[in-house]
Design a protein around this nucleic acid. Sequence first.
DNA 1: CATGAATGAGTATTCATTCAT
DNA 2: AATGAATGAATACTCATTCAT
Lengths: 204, 204, 204, 204
Amino acid sequence: MGLEDYRRNVSETKHASILKAGREVFLRDGFARAAVAEIARDADVSTATLYKHFASKEELFAAIIMDAVTRVEDISDQEGSDETFADLLLTIGRTYLANQFEHRANDLMRIVIGESSANPGLAAETLRVLTGRRRQRLVTLFDRLVERGIMKPNDTDLSAQLISGMIKELFVWPALFDSSFALPPDTDEKLRAIIQVFLARYEA
Amino acid sequence: MGLEDYRRNVSETKHASILKAGREVFLRDGFARAAVAEIARDADVSTATLYKHFASKEELFAAIIMDAVTRVEDISDQEGSDETFADLLLTIGRTYLANQFEHRANDLMRIVIGESSANPGLAAETLRVLTGRRRQRLVTLFDRLVERGIMKPNDTDLSAQLISGMIKELFVWPALFDSSFALPPDTDEKLRAIIQVFLARYEA
Amino acid sequence: MGLEDYRRNVSETKHASILKAGREVFLRDGFARAAVAEIARDADVSTATLYKHFASKEELFAAIIMDAVTRVEDISDQEGSDETFADLLLTIGRTYLANQFEHRANDLMRIVIGESSANPGLAAETLRVLTGRRRQRLVTLFDRLVERGIMKPNDTDLSAQLISGMIKELFVWPALFDSSFALPPDTDEKLRAIIQVFLARYEA
Amino acid sequence: MGLEDYRRNVSETKHASILKAGREVFLRDGFARAAVAEIARDADVSTATLYKHFASKEELFAAIIMDAVTRVEDISDQEGSDETFADLLLTIGRTYLANQFEHRANDLMRIVIGESSANPGLAAETLRVLTGRRRQRLVTLFDRLVERGIMKPNDTDLSAQLISGMIKELFVWPALFDSSFALPPDTDEKLRAIIQVFLARYEA
DNA sequence: CATGAATGAGTATTCATTCAT
DNA sequence: AATGAATGAATACTCATTCAT
């Protein structure tokens, strides 16, 4: 059994190193300009081996995006406990922005958006995982807050979207068009202003 | 002078037909996959003539985007008069969405976003024209409303962004990842819900 | 008759300005890389007009070369009188080199040589005019010197070639392969050494 | 190890066939008119493979020239033994001309000269290898002859150039301008005349 | 007569993917 | 299983020359 294990190990190592190299190259050059040969070289693998692991450039790209999207999600798993509603929302907003601006999530998103007409499935899946899951978690939280009488009864799916939309407008939208955009120093103040709007309507 | 006029006419006609053909091809294939030769063929022009009008594929693309962005802008120039604040906002929202979903503005935006790291200048300019001008108009309106005591005093630049962000989240964001996304039947209801949130905080 | 004269004048002016502009461009870019459109632009003439004067790029090039070759020749028409044989040869050598290194004759020669398989007629003609005429003049001189008993009787056609060959080896041959080659400071000394060899065999 | 050997073999074969095909095409068409695609076709290789072996048209051309220049050099390695000085020089002259007129060295030289402003490095290197090495060998020989009292003490570097220049004038210079130029029947007589001039000055 | 615009036929180079070993 | 070499198809861009006005 040792031999098989060894082989699986080697294979998994290569798989991972291809993903990693691909990530760098795609991030640097975008989908169309990225060269499969360069990814293989950077991963210390022959192109043929790369194609054994991923049937096409598209598939490799999709795997990289899914990998990244999943990782992003994993980090954002924290929830407040006994803070005020406003504090809770602030924490959520900060966490969201941290996830979005670390790990080059914005850069990956731009590339996915650019490829979305050529590869609609991937874009849809990315949206589902990235946005959908986040929203779901927010909805669950809001539902609990409604139950506990902290939040007014409301269409929580909608309210989750609205606060998310306000945050995106200020911090994500500019990043879509400007790869050098960074979070501004007054991010927290702006988050608080957003929360104020949100609470004016939704706080019990 | 007849000769010059004739030439200018012919030239302008060709220029326009190249822009039109390019628009179609770029929209269908994205920037990288689009073939200059096909654009020329569709425009009934030789590639050499195309290159007399536009020095490079990038320049042609930029011209097409700027043309589209300017056109979009031109339409959105209507403003309510004696309606209620809520009605006014509803009209604004509807107009905004109409502009965004007609003329394939979403599709063009996706392509620009995808190219934004390769062509930062174009993306920045697009953002400036498309988003910036719209926001400016909203800010002007809000300032007037504050003066007339209809709206609470507030950072109107921020409030303009926030309502815009909520609308984008529901209708533009999904369109970025799904080229077949269309305005849902309950668009108006959702717009009203957004306005409700906005007014809870900003109505005088 | 005035109108015709005027037209002829204008035409000749354009002809000349095309030749001049072409000279510059061909010298800078070589034959193949030179662009007819650029020549026309530099000459303040439309391409169509250029083609009225010269039927093709080749023909224009040939005209330029012939013009240059003839000009080069015109200058070299000076001859010593009562100096010594050695002094006479030195003067001739200096004049030859001056002609060759002024007016970019070396650069033109390189281009002609490069095109000689594609355009054998032009190369042959260039050789005939440039080298042939010079040699002829030298032969005539040598024949006179033989008559006057200053030079030993000899095959003057051959001796003319031999002194010319020695000079070329030192000063022209390097220039063929190196466009930045310039006459060295010890040119005169080297010329004298060449003359010494020549006289050892040919002086009476 | 069989695989590696096999691959190297195949690769070397292709490399050589590209060089050969390129040589033919460049010789026929010159640098600018030669089409890389045609070279690839003649070499039974795809253009992509050609570009794996040579990074650009320029590099391929340089490789071909260097290959030719080196081969030319290899042949000229013979030296007289107990002949007279005059005989020795005759042998040297004949060998030089044989090398120059075989293997189409003149044709290649014309192309290099034509490209020398666009590709100064290659021209310089060609001159260095082709002319420089030959001259060096001649200088060494002359130095020995001076030592042995056969040749007058002299600047052997200069004398080597002078005899070379006389030979070039008669046989190489015309070939530069006329690709159909061939060695004339009286070549030997002319060589002897040149040697006579040379010896008049340099024989001890 | 002069022109600016137009073009067809090229050109070098790249790249995702396959295949013989 | 792994590879290096090979390729066919594509692509942006250029240019000498012509033509309608």
